[in-house]
Design a protein around this nucleic acid. Structure first.
Lengths: 335, 335
DNA sequence: CTGTTAGCGCATTCAT
DNA sequence: ATGAATGCGCTAACAG
């Protein structure tokens, strides 16, 4: 009922509040005996430091903020999981922010983030950030780490999206496909810097390397959603010359495409091969060939980068984690 | 760079800090003229109140905490999404905590939650809470709302799990199945109060109502995971007298079961019908019949309940949202 | 309607 | 190694 404060602990232990503070935080200059006594008393009184008071008094917030566009989407949920694990290990709280539309984005960048000591830093997952905004924020002392989306002047953690897309496309090419449909998505801003953009480039790379011309009609927008993938696939499959394979830039779209194929009575992989992207938890069970990326580790690394920066050891270069092409039923080697 | 404080705003606007505080928070006793001026100055100076200072000084944290066992699991991610939406609408931050194993659970209940003013309240999603702990916490002024898991003395938001399971089982019965396997999970604590427990009871209800005896050998533990569902299904399907239908208490397990069936060359729904539970985003695309529950709304309602409690209007009874049986391919009406 | 006076609970100098 | 003093930035009575 009564919120025990550091003062009562001090009184009870017969020392000053300063000593209690030092003892409980494991600072060096405290005699073992005193420390033991203080810890004992604190335990008895069930003393729990008020985080807000300590955040106000010190400069560390012991809180790391993570912003994602759609917290319910598998990929983001996994990244958040990774961040949480590292954060909680380090004794930091995790504040989750949703930055979906552009209005939220502006509010987030202008109002939330600048509140300097609110948090130790922020992890932006696929949140577009202009170099100007980035400079402005870091100038204000806001530590930022990006996951996926790369921004000038901000450390980022991700995979080699371009290469990963090339790998996936090459598998399809090896299987003999020459008409490959692409289920991509919303190219916001400079496409050569966005994730979808990089993947699309990788896709084109592979085709060109194989001496094939890219048929722009086969490049569609699946909106990174199941329904979008379904729609896009339905469209592609109804063309006069439909593709014999689809490369979806997310497993959600790939699943949508699988659904479309099933509805249209098109056999997968007999008549249509499909490759997804992400390594969604369901991909194995439904036999979806996909490019697996280390999602949880992505978040964990980002969190670590942030913590390191907080501790004065900022990373000086981006971290690129390994991806892996996982071949499964939807690209069953055609007999 | 320079953190603008309320003092500078006050100075610049020629009023006291108290007035600035009142003006900016929209409190009644401030003249329109003064308020306008203060707001103007605050905007110019790009003043952003320090949340920790205000939390320390006031009694509201403007933070709502949400605890889930596995943040990366679809169901939890959806609930969190719902909570976030309502929280951010109300201007509150969202603090995410993972409470997986029992050690985390104890630490959470004993150390995190009791920090009274740390948060306005907590939403526990499927976190077992003993009536004793609940009483202790509420006694300390910690507001709690439960999602799913019901605990004596704590308002909860959920669906009628028992009825939902009965509905699902009845569909299978109507289709003529008499040997139905159950993919359930870890009965932690009193099973008749846990979600899996309630669903299992609903399952038994339906069988008994149909005059069928429950074959305990068909009741398995799928651990609420894809792999667990696969294993459990594999086991069931290898019995001398295998079930002709499976009822999985989560879509993850159902998908695992679908994978197992595919691997074993068992046609679904021809030789085996499957019903899942949750209404996972992928269920539609893969044709999985399932019991859909309003996941996002679950979180949103819980958040609303918490906010209402904070505002002195605590709910006096649990909220039961509607579920819906969605019939799809995996229970294709057999010709 | 507005200004003054006190803290909120803790982390930090600076002494000792 | 420890204590006393000061302030983090804001809200909350209490006056006026």
């Amino acid at each position: 009922m009564t919120k025990v404060t550091i003062r009562e602990v001090a009184a009870e232990a017969g020392v000053s509040v300063a000593t209690v503070s030092r003892a409980l935080r494991g600072l060096p200059s405290v005699s073992p005996a005193t420390r033991a006594r203080v810890e004992q008393v604190a335990a008895n009184l069930e003393y729990v430091p008020d985080p807000y008071a300590s955040r106000l008094a010190s400069s560390r917030a012991h809180t790391i903020l993570v912003a994602v566009p759609v917290p319910g989407q598998w990929y983001y949920a996994q990244v958040v999981t990774g961040v949480e694990a590292v954060a909680s290990d380090a004794g930091s709280d995790l504040q989750l922010h949703v930055v979906g539309d552009d209005a939220q984005r502006r509010r987030f960048i202008e109002d939330i983030l600048p509140g300097s000591r609110r948090v130790d830093g922020a992890i932006l997952v696929d949140i577009p950030l202009s170099p100007a905004d980035a400079a402005e924020l870091t100038g204000r002392g806001v530590r930022i780490v990006a996951v996926g989306q790369h921004t000038e002047g901000v450390v980022s953690v991700g995979i080699d999206n371009r290469q990963a897309a090339t790998d996936a496309t090459q598998l399809l090419l090896e299987l003999g496909h020459t008409r490959i449909g692409l289920l991509g998505g919303m190219p916001t801003g400079r496409s050569d810097l966005s994730i979808p953009g990089m993947r699309e480039i990788g896709f084109r790379d592979a085709l060109e390397a194989a001496g094939l011309r890219v048929d722009e009609d086969l490049i569609t927008n699946g909106n990174f959603s199941i329904d979008g993938g379904d729609d896009a696939a339905t469209h592609l499959l109804s063309l006069r010359e439909p593709p014999t394979a689809l490369f979806a830039l997310s497993d959600e779209m790939a699943v949508g495409a699988m659904g479309a194929a099933r509805r249209l009575g098109i056999d997968v992989p007999g008549q249509l091969c499909i490759v997804g992207f992400d390594g969604h938890e369901f991909s194995g069970a439904i036999g979806l060939t996909t490019v697996r990326q280390p999602v949880v580790e992505l978040g964990a690394s980002a969190a670590q980068a942030l913590l390191d920066a907080v501790n004065g050891k900022p990373w000086n270069e981006d971290k690129v984690l390994a991806h892996e092409l996982v071949e499964r039923d939807t690209t069953g080697r055609r007999g």
